[in-house]
Design a protein around this nucleic acid. Sequence first.
DNA 1: AACCATGTTGACCGAATGGTCAGAACATGC
DNA 2: GCATGTTCTGACCATTCGGTCAACATGGTT
Lengths: 222, 222
Amino acid sequence: MTDKTEGNRPKNGRGTPGRREANRIATEDTILHAAESVFAEAGFGGATMQMIADTAGLPKANLHYYFATKEELYRKVVERIFGIWLEAANAMDGAAGPAEGIGAYIDAKMEISRRHPNGSKVWASEVMHGAPVVQDYLETTLRDWTEGRARIIRRWIAEGRMAEVDPNHLLYMLWATTQHYADFGHQIEVLNHGPLSDADWEAAKASVKAMVLRGIGIAPGA
Amino acid sequence: MTDKTEGNRPKNGRGTPGRREANRIATEDTILHAAESVFAEAGFGGATMQMIADTAGLPKANLHYYFATKEELYRKVVERIFGIWLEAANAMDGAAGPAEGIGAYIDAKMEISRRHPNGSKVWASEVMHGAPVVQDYLETTLRDWTEGRARIIRRWIAEGRMAEVDPNHLLYMLWATTQHYADFGHQIEVLNHGPLSDADWEAAKASVKAMVLRGIGIAPGA
DNA sequence: AACCATGTTGACCGAATGGTCAGAACATGC
DNA sequence: GCATGTTCTGACCATTCGGTCAACATGGTT
């Protein structure tokens, strides 16, 4: 994992991160990735610090040097995912209309399901278990974000640019459908007789966009 | 739990179930319900036999009398859920057309999300973790069911009764959207500022049906 | 080179977990 | 009411878990 073969010298002692800090960040990242993977596969309760250590290729005690407790490590993993989730949220902003805004949002969320399936699973698991560590995020950030987008959707409806639908239920459908490709990826792979190819993913995106957009009163070709 | 206040006599010794068997079935059911609840809240790894025993109001050793291992108990819970899932599948059969068939299926699945949210969560968790105990169900029963319904949908499309959509992605959308109300029920309750009322559930059903049916080219009023 | 802060690690610990078991309590057939 | 198989349960056990710690290694600074 850590490269100790090459003889990289300390360089100067100013400005540059230094090997110390660079290694620390790299190790933290290694642990977080391993943790995300293990939490996704086994759940919080099923995951053990030993599994995460083995996946990261580090002794267990070293994990506790960077993250004091299993809960703290888990919290960092969930927070990182929430950040990625929020990035995609921007795709809906600054859109000229519902077709572009919602279309772009679906694309962004489908891409997240494809690139970060483990993160999506951890998030799903966290919410399913009552959001023990991100309850405050739900009540503040997520609630604000949702109400903001609902306002935009209502305006689009008022302007006659899309059908009259309940904005909340539309958002739930968007979340559910896009995240399904990550959370239930195993089931989909079984029904697909194998992993989804690039073409499969493009077809999935196109299908979802076509059905959702038509479902809110926007012609497919728009 | 078990009624020992009334003095119910053994009755005859033929045909009738007898107190013995009746109690056994009742106790098994109590345990299965408690297990479903605990597995849903804590996940398989996070659940403990002690939690399930406390929830069921029974000593832990008694659980092991009825279910030898935690895995066996979990398997029974998941199989029970799969059975309920299959019941709803029938709602799509014998329908005159896509509007009735898919509309009824959405209704049935939404009702399951409402009545059996814990079961839905256990199922979601099981699939998310790679279906360790129901892999064979996915490859046989679910695959057959899916291919059968896909054929029906393709026929409807060929008959010009609905828009051209990929049957598999339509089914994924149906599963994702309806199950979301159970699996992410906590998140929805936060955004709804409280549990969903009867009216809320009806509105949810209506919203989902309207968006999905319009999304596959069926007019809302049909 | 000497020093110190930052990392690293094997060995260890108390607590909790899944599971066992011998015997008590019970229902039932005779 | 006695014999017999079923159900129930407290006490117990081996293992595993999250977490600790003292000793050691490393990188940077003077």
